[in-house]
């Protein structure tokens, strides 16, 4: 008898889960993506998402996991947070000056390279890859406990601070204006390029002491010939 009871319980649980799932989708409008688009202010961003929607036949927000909107002239990402299932978001070569979306709790890859950003403060628990090269960034504050690579080269960074970069393996800071950098809390760092920054020799000495990390800096650069 017990096995039968268990079987009935399992069936009941499965039914409940199915109903829950159904009710979760049915909580969305008939086309949730279409509805979410109304919250997007930027016409270029809206157009890009709409094109993706049409191409992939998205109806539910859970389907929108990847978004690539390059060279679109996007100025603002306002409203993007609605697409909370995004894992990859790439906005290369647009006109974005500020990045503030919150709620993208599953984001793993973010690309804001070649946008006229001046300052960026970013906290993401899931983000693994961050591309922010060739912007106008002057200050950068990161708390990315899952990040393994940050490409922030070719900016104008004078200040780079972080709270959690415990998984960071590769850090690209070539061609910035950094005079200082905290290198003491990057336990997984394997590679760092900080050439073309006005850093003091003492910092280079400290970099050379980092265990298991290859650091390219102006103190050991061999290409100044």
């Amino acid at each position: 008898m017990r096995p039968q009871k268990h079987s009935a319980v399992r069936y009941g649980l499965a039914l409940m889960l199915a109903l829950c799932s159904l009710s979760s989708h049915s909580a969305e409008p008939a086309n949730a993506v279409h509805a979410a688009l109304t919250g997007i202010r930027d016409a270029a961003l809206k157009s890009c998402i709409a094109q993706h929607q049409q191409k992939h036949q998205w109806r539910h927000l859970a389907q929108v996991t990847q978004l690539k909107c390059h060279n679109r002239g996007i100025v603002s990402l306002e409203g993007l947070a609605t697409f909370s299932a995004l894992t990859r978001a790439s906005f290369f070569n647009n006109a974005i000056t500020h990045y503030t979306p919150t709620g993208l709790s599953q984001l793993k890859h973010l690309n804001l390279a070649k946008n006229p950003l001046r300052s960026l403060a970013l906290t993401h628990t899931t983000l693994e890859e961050l591309y922010i090269f060739s912007t106008n960034l002057q200050t950068l504050t990161l708390s990315l406990p899952a990040a393994t690579i940050v490409r922030a080269n070719n900016n104008q960074l004078t200040q780079f601070t972080y709270r959690h970069l415990t998984q960071l393996k590769k850090l690209y800071l070539f061609d910035n204006a950094l005079k200082a950098l905290d290198i003491t809390r990057l336990p997984q760092l394997h590679f760092m390029d900080v050439r073309q920054n006005p850093m003091p020799d003492e910092l280079y000495d400290a970099m050379d002491q980092l265990p298991q990390a290859t650091v390219l800096h102006d103190g050991n650069a061999e290409d100044w010939q």
């Binding site: 070569n93 690309n111 070649k114 591309y131 490409r151 080269n153 690209y172």
Partner: peptide, 9 residues
Amino acid sequence: EEAGGSAIG
């Protein structure tokens, strides 16, 4: 590359 160059450097 795509317009603007490589997105991932």
